[in-house]
Amino acid sequence: MNVLDPVPPASTASVAALAARPGDLRGLRIGLLDNSKPNADALLGRVAELLAQRAGAGAIRRWVKPGSSIPAADHDAIAAGADVVLTGSAD
């Protein structure tokens, strides 16, 4: 028999391209957007340290989102204060 599919069609909305990537990270400022989940700061912070050591990245700055379920962060401030960004999503 024929039935109707309960899953709606995929969105036809335009797909946004990613930001242009720099060739390397030398001297670039790393922004960390910490979602306040436990140990997110440890993971993000260590990855940033290693990027500084191994790839010559510059200053590391951290922004804290008060909760992972709260969709609020000052993206303009982060974009002004960082050249590349690491963020987290998991428990």
Partner: peptide, 28 residues
Amino acid sequence: LERRGRPTVLLGTEPFRPLATTAASAAG
């Protein structure tokens, strides 16, 4: 942040991959 021209990487754990990819697709 990507829309503001800042290359961004999402760090997570493996069980959260389907959720992260769905969220990224939903946001275009």
